[in-house]
Amino acid sequence: MSDTTMAPGALPADGVPRRRRRWNASLLVGMVMTGAFLAIALLSLVWTPADPNQVAPRDRLLPAGSAGHLLGTDALGRDVASALMAGAWTSIVVAAGAALIALVLGTISGLAATSNRQYVNETVMRGADILLSMPGVVFALVLAATIGAGVGATIFALSVFFTPSFTRVVRAAALRVLEEDFVTAAALYGRRRLFILARHVVPNIFSVMIVQFTLYFAVGILTEAGLSYLGVGVTRPEVSWGILLKEAQETVGVASPLAIWPGLAIVFAVLGLNILGDGLRDVLDPRLRRRKS
């Protein structure tokens, strides 16, 4: 599990000065990897080689490449490939769900914190600071254990700790836009604040929001897998890569390759999203590339 207080990918992938481009290698690689990840997850909704929860103890621990089981079976004879596919969907539901909630809440609170009223700003930003300064994993752990395991609970736990980062990023970006001449002009023209925020600010910070969402999508996958691994995240019949890894670890002395697959799946998905985030940032938002000549 990575942290929940900051996205490691939130820095430019490559700080090398270069001109803004519409297309770049990061974007391409990231889109292909993420596309494959999404496609597999979507496919799992309509088809998997077998029911990922269908047990067959007589066919347990089959090696990869066995008939009908591309990646073999686990300790109860469940098909590993099917479980990985189902796990991809769980990852998306939980991580993207949490990132989406955080995006909405973070945008609302971040915009609110650009208010002219100082006490609103202070309250929102100090609140975000407090949440950010807490060890996210420890809190998520207690929170997840508190509201019980399951998809909904995990989404809730993650979104609580993602939101403040979004608040900060959105506020910073919004403040920059609010300083722009056309916004000042709109204000002078007598537009109400809400109108200005909706009409001028949000469209202009949208790219920032997308990049932030992508990166926290990745953090969410890592965190969900970590919580599920600890037994406080998703539980069966839902399948999570974290659960698969935990189960695999229990058979370590008997069938070790089982522990390889879920880890590889996580790395693939997270790497793809991080690369995509970098690529998107370069394309969408030149402002985020700091001090580039």
């Binding site: 929860n53 047990v55 395991a149 399951g150 037994g231 539980t235 069966r236």
Partner: peptide, 25 residues
């Protein structure tokens, strides 16, 4: 106990019962 539950639920579903699993810590 979660392992036997994995098996039992699959067995019950195998005879046509619809099972909702409620996993509690």
């Amino acid at each position: 106990l979660s392992l036997p539950a994995d098996l039992l639920i699959a067995q019950l579903q195998g005879v046509g019962a619809k099972i909702e699993r409620n996993a509690l810590e």
